[in-house]
Design a protein around this nucleic acid. Structure first.
Lengths: 339, 339
DNA sequence: CTGTTAGCGCCTTCAC
DNA sequence: GTGAAGGCGCTAACAG
């Protein structure tokens, strides 16, 4: 049975509220040195730790925020989590991380649960299969920030990156290398960034007057198997692509396995550009040309916005931040040669 | 301002306790159909969500557990987190994840904070620079389970794997391939599993009468840079190793960079075995021979033990589980040839 | 400088 | 079948 304020008060022969005052350490409230010492002694003796939730109930402020990510195994989200954790520690907040495994039910459960636990704010990378729970948050005027993914028709704070431009530039790079059959390995297209990447892809294809064939766009999921299956599909085309842009971390690995299984090699048979860079990217069978954006920036910026909203009662106009992407050219892209 | 029980009660013209009864949905407590419906209507109208922390304060049970991991970017810990999250969802618990970035201060803060937030139990992969906070948990008779790492002189529940045996077998594998100069790329040796791996390494070296040179044991940290620096050191030896066992995920990547920088190749110049397998292991410059253990098993087992302790008031004797490791041979290990 | 009082939102026991 | 009372642990406002 953990010690409470009352226990400390009894042991030091003082009223609970006095103990509370000492522990809260208010500058302007004067307390005799002697009682303070007596109380601190009792605190140590009993190993007293305040019940933060009881305090939060009273103060209507928990000093905790939630982070909901779809995929903890994706190093982008893991990196963002670490980055936000750091910011939280600096600002005296506790970060409670929850992962949804790209499952909408899980996300709704997590949002409601964290909300009901009295957190002060929320950072979410949403699954985007539904949005009512996000609208509810908005209606309750609860402070939250979306990261990586946002909803075009809901007014929220968000921190994303310019996926359309990044995809466009990647495709232009491939076109400049002489490629004409360029595939887009997609994941779930309802996800805002994937949707945008596809838009950028199509725009580049159109701008450079390449044949616009739907058969070069494949994929609907996030898993290794999704990436594998879609790539097999693409490579089995009568007129297969000579280059491709992969829209995800894990599906890229699936794509690599498919390329190996087909007896092909990167970049000799097919050039590959991938969203997103990981620590492994330079050390893969073929070091990958990648597009990425700074997890530090996403983490720091999203927390900064959330903190501002929390401290102003969510009264600030919505912040919409777009983080620049970086393009890292390695060995997985090379000039098209019709050998 | 979120709606409370009182608001719902007022709107439905009934006493708060009645609302509570309806919401708790006790079978044995009879409530007229009519009031129940009136109350449910009010609940929906007000978008009422119970305050879980207030309930927890009253019930002394929060239905949440904490998970503290040192490195969210390490796919082993991330995988364990996902696995535990799944178990929690099944059992009606909320999982609150916290990462410490291998920092002892952060861990102590997280333990205390989560504890003070009234969680029912804790799963920890400890940093192991200090242990007083772990002893405190034990003294408070608070339910917790250690994973991946444990303390030899503290009696706790834990789920680990047989690192000594795994390392021993890996070294034997290398010896059987004809290697005689085998290095151990270490990370922090105070960590229980690293310590055990080193023991297994030394035992194999001794059992097979190889020269036992301390210069072949390098490394004290977890980072890419640590792995890189130590490997450079090893490869710069007058009589460099022809094989090595790496004790960590990220340091292995650092080692690969060092090997590349030295103009050497795996496995022609040096054979490499790594703890732990990741989704990238088969697709690296040289597909890695790895040792791993199931994240599902660690997650499921640790939660199972914790649940048992939580539901019995932490009265069960400590469970000490050792998960079997798996050895996956790929291309990074080959016969020693003195060319 | 310190004690008293009240109440955050919830649930359980005891009335009726 | 439902209302009233009390209290989980804490803190702020008000006394004195």
């Amino acid at each position: 049975m953990a010690a409470t304020l009352k226990d400390v008060a009894k042991l030091s022969g003082v009223h609970p509220s006095t103990v509370s005052r000492v522990l809260r350490n208010k500058e302007n409230i004067p307390i005799s040195k002697e009682t303070r010492e007596r109380i601190m002694k009792a605190v140590n003796e009993l190993h007293y730790q305040p019940d933060i939730t009881a305090r939060a109930l009273r103060l209507k402020k928990s000093n905790a925020i939630g982070l909901i990510i779809p995929d903890i195994l994706n190093s982008f989200f893991a990196g963002v989590a670490r980055s936000i954790e750091k910011e939280c520690a600096k600002a005296g907040y506790t970060l409670l991380v929850s992962e949804t495994n790209e499952n909408q039910e899980n996300e709704i459960r997590s949002v409601n649960d964290l909300y009901s636990r009295g957190i002060d704010g929320l950072i979410i990378a949403p699954v985007q299969n539904s949005d009512q729970h996000i609208r509810d948050l908005r209606e309750k005027n609860f402070p939250f920030v979306l990261i990586d993914r946002c909803f075009e028709d809901i007014e929220t704070n968000y921190v994303i990156s310019d996926n359309e431009k990044a995809a466009y530039n990647a495709i232009v790079h491939l076109i400049e290398l002489g490629h004409k059959r360029i595939a887009f390995l997609s994941s779930r297209r309802e996800i805002y960034p994937v949707h945008k990447r596809l838009t950028g892809y199509k725009k580049a294809i159109a701008d450079f007057n390449l044949a616009d064939s739907e058969e070069l766009i494949e994929g609907t999921g996030f898993t290794f198997q999704n990436g594998f299956d879609s790539t097999i599909q693409l490579l089995s085309l009568p007129n297969p692509p000579t280059a491709m842009l992969s829209s995800g971390n894990i599906i890229t690995i699936g794509a690599m396995q498919a390329i190996i299984d087909k007896g092909l090699s990167i970049p000799n048979d097919i050039s590959l550009i991938a969203f997103t860079d990981t620590i492994y990217s330079p050390y893969l069978v073929c070091p990958l040309t990648t597009i990425t954006h700074s997890v530090q920036k996403v983490g720091a910026k999203s927390f900064e916005i959330l903190l501002a909203q929390m401290t102003t009662g969510n009264s600030l106009p919505c912040s919409k931040i777009i983080i620049e992407t970086e393009f890292t050219i390695r060995n997985s892209t090379k000039k098209y040669s019709n050998n």
